[in-house]
């Protein structure tokens, strides 16, 4: 009589155990860890530097995009005088090299009915303001966001916000400068140098910004072990100012 009790008891105990599984919120999708493992593997994507604090920010550069109140009192705010011409104010010399009538090329769109912003980057130009003073609207907002993200250690987020700004204003050297800064903080000195160089190509007539870009190049070269190149860049920074 007792023998058959054993399996029955066991069954009921097991059943009871099953029944006592706590109900609760059920995860909709349990992402397996494999994807995260992939992230570790693909660390070339700065994935590994995410957690690092923004190391050795270029404190000495003094270049700070004008973000009102973003950096608190500690952030040196500096503006860069811009030349009278719009950003990257080079003139494309494409007058036909022939006796054909010279076609002038206004920077803005063609037909008269269009109210074109004179700058192709999508930044509205407003009268005779210098380029830096025009750093408002979307670009300023995104640079502010990026600064906050960088401040909280989210370098990937900062870089992503800066690339968003760069898509909106691809020829704004201050965006490229900040992108270079964040790349440097992420440990990618080679890309930092490249972005600073790209920034230089749009910083014509803005000596203070040029000097800061050269200083950033100097830092990036030092990180890459190129002290001679770094010294050269520092010289260029002095000449620019």
């Amino acid at each position: 009589m007792i023998k058959w009790l054993i399996p029955a008891l066991t069954a009921s105990v097991v059943l009871g155990g099953c029944a006592s599984v706590p109900r609760g919120s059920i995860p909709v999708v349990d992402s397996s860890s494999s994807v995260y493992g992939q992230q570790q593997a693909g660390a070339g994507d700065y994935g590994t530097s995410t957690a690092q604090p923004p190391q050795s920010q270029p404190q000495d550069s003094g270049v700070v995009v004008m973000v009102p109140g973003a950096g608190g009192s500690s952030a040196p705010i500096q503006t860069f005088p811009a030349p009278g011409s719009p950003i990257g104010g080079g003139v494309v010399g494409s007058e036909p090299f022939s006796t054909a009538p010279v076609i002038s090329e206004p920077a803005g769109g063609g037909s008269s009915s269009v109210p074109p912003p004179s700058m192709p980057s999508g930044i509205p130009s407003s009268g005779g303001l210098a380029a830096d003073e025009q750093l408002d609207g979307p670009v300023l907002a995104l640079l502010t966001t990026a600064q906050q993200q960088q401040g909280s250690g989210d370098l990937n987020g900062a870089a992503s916000s800066l690339e968003r700004a760069q898509r909106i204003a691809p020829r704004e050297p201050q965006v490229l400068y900040r992108l270079a800064e964040v790349r440097l903080a992420q440990g990618d000195a080679a890309q930092a140098e490249q972005f600073a160089r790209r920034g230089l190509s749009y910083a014509s007539g803005r000596p203070a910004l040029q000097a800061s870009l050269w200083n950033l190049i100097a830092q990036a070269r030092e990180r890459q072990g190129d002290s001679a190149g770094a010294a050269q860049a520092r010289e260029r920074a002095k000449v620019s100012l």
């Binding site: 104010g89 080079g90 003139v91 010399g93 090329e105 192709p120 190509s201 014509s204």
Partner: peptide, 8 residues
Amino acid sequence: LPLDMPLP
């Protein structure tokens, strides 16, 4: 937008 490379 018209091509407009800054003068190097």
